[in-house]
Design a protein around this nucleic acid. Sequence first.
DNA 1: AGATTCTCCCATAATTCTGCGGAAATCCTT
DNA 2: AAGGATTTCCGCAGAATTATGGGAGAATCT
Lengths: 220, 220
Amino acid sequence: MHTIYLVDDEVNLNRVLVKYLEQEGWQVKSFTSGEAAASAIIEKPDLWILDIMLPDLDGFQLIKRIKAHDETTPVIFISARDEDIDKIIGLEMGSDDYIAKPFLPRELVIRVKKILARAYATPKTGLIRYGDYTIYPEKRIIEENGQEIDLTSKEYDLLILFATQIGTPMSREQILVSVWGDDYFGSDRVVDDLVRRVRKKLSKLELETIYGIGYRLVAA
Amino acid sequence: MHTIYLVDDEVNLNRVLVKYLEQEGWQVKSFTSGEAAASAIIEKPDLWILDIMLPDLDGFQLIKRIKAHDETTPVIFISARDEDIDKIIGLEMGSDDYIAKPFLPRELVIRVKKILARAYATPKTGLIRYGDYTIYPEKRIIEENGQEIDLTSKEYDLLILFATQIGTPMSREQILVSVWGDDYFGSDRVVDDLVRRVRKKLSKLELETIYGIGYRLVAA
DNA sequence: AGATTCTCCCATAATTCTGCGGAAATCCTT
DNA sequence: AAGGATTTCCGCAGAATTATGGGAGAATCT
């Protein structure tokens, strides 16, 4: 779950946007003044959304301070004035975006999704932690407290499938397609079998069966 | 099939739009005055399309009254003036949209399709809040203050059915079709049973019995 | 090729879910 | 307030689904 800090002095719009963003499951903190927002920079939210026109502090000042603290933090700018938009585009936009007023809350949500996906995509080179387990996707290795555990290739495919979608239920159909490919035509009971083997090898992995639906990996 | 109520005092445009909308298979009722439309609010159409500029009643007044009756009813606004558009966006837009004059009837049809699909489809992303409960449709999870509650698949289907149609009464027939599918031929008493089970597990869900009709989920 | 591991599948056991009947409670109508 | 209609409640048996153990063949490795 991502944290989003929103800065907009129009309380009405602010309230509406917070509602929309929360509805997507994000944790939102909102500010109506630039100074208040500035003092929250150290909290390192995953994304800033800020209106350029603020009463107390120039929006561009705020951007500078955000970027000074962490260059990589993505920011979405809101502005009504074309010259602001031009100025923003002139900036070096790392993983940023802007949206011109007036806009539909929905449009903002779409942009937020894109930005977050791009900025916080599971890096292929990174690693995934789950309790005592550490998974190195590019090496196809999983360790339990530094101790490597041997998995067969299908077992590993299943693990990755679940580990990258923690909490989401997967139907046998989905698992079949993902692990076996869409040209497999045997019984879908092989999924049960694979799950059984993975459970045996990785006993601390909470692979929950959902009766009538499939399986899901419970968050550690 | 969806019912659409259209409010526009320009009789010519009105007639054209009705024709286009009906061509898509929707049931359309049209009004040329705000007052006439206002008195039809209780009929709960699936969608309102309304021109902000009306001779007798201010379009914004009408919106208020529609939303007061049912917050979730989607509305598509029609307006030529930019300041109206700004004002509309400032509103808390649930599942609404707007279209600026002049527009092609075809554009309107496209928007109607989108709105209806979004408003009356189970959300695959995001979450639904109901009092202390938070529902994650794509994860088939419901939490009460962060504490997960186990539901069987039918129980969950029922929950989603009601949670996406808060306030709307559902007949046993409708529930049977939605949860069991239209190839179920047993007694419709199973619905009562399922409702009982869901009530037991989710005691704070106000699943109201409508004697002789069915059930409905009262807004939290 | 031979050995070893992996995968699929079957049969059976264990588990979970659900429909149903009937009794009790509640609601509506007169 | 009575009486019929409707809904709720309860528990259980059977249905549906999943887990498990074991074996045969396929794939992989040496």
